[in-house]
Design a protein around this nucleic acid. Sequence first.
DNA 1: TGACAATATGTCCGTTTGGACATATGATCT
DNA 2: AGATCATATGTCCAAACGGACATATTGTCA
Lengths: 102, 102
Amino acid sequence: MDSKKQKKLEARGWVVGDASEFLQLTDEEARYIELKRALSESLKTERLKQQVTQVELAKMLGSSQSRVAKMEAGDAAVTVDLLLKALLTLGVTKKQLAKIIA
Amino acid sequence: MDSKKQKKLEARGWVVGDASEFLQLTDEEARYIELKRALSESLKTERLKQQVTQVELAKMLGSSQSRVAKMEAGDAAVTVDLLLKALLTLGVTKKQLAKIIA
DNA sequence: TGACAATATGTCCGTTTGGACATATGATCT
DNA sequence: AGATCATATGTCCAAACGGACATATTGTCA
């Protein structure tokens, strides 16, 4: 689990930049992170495209601005579930989702 | 919505009052559930295709047989994150994922 | 039938997550 | 400069999640 490894490293004083570079990630871990990155990036893009603020999106989600910011930052403590729910709330279609992921 | 389907969902932890309440699911909630269903179904299909048992897949994931069973059952207490990690562990590609989702 | 493997179901409990809040930074005005 | 809006960052704690285990069910053999 990457966040655990990362936290271990950080606890030892390492400043972790690019995950796949410093951590010994399995291929499937790296692909999972990349997937998340693609989703969070698309979230920000889609939100801006619709001219919605983070506060507004947070309200739509029943969440808070700070969490939306973390979603878009690709924060490790944000799940794919939350990203997907946010994208769906913005009206992203299955087809668009597929394009984001592929 | 027939009551059979509803009871199945209830048994799996989905909070469903009655048929009308179920129909009150927002579009984005319904689409999220459908997405999860597609992933769990694909997980089972892919595992069987590779002739892997739930116990074996659990070992690959560092998880347990019971959780794998819940993943494939589309249990409400299973996240998309876990489903994705399992699919990636089975070697499913981005393209295949996109196809599953779309 | 009994025995065995595979899968399903239920519960427990430590860990992770997410909403909330405070606060900081940044950007754009007059 | 100060004011205002948008976004980022950090922390807290209740709720949700996940691994583990027990147990039940199902399927398939001899």
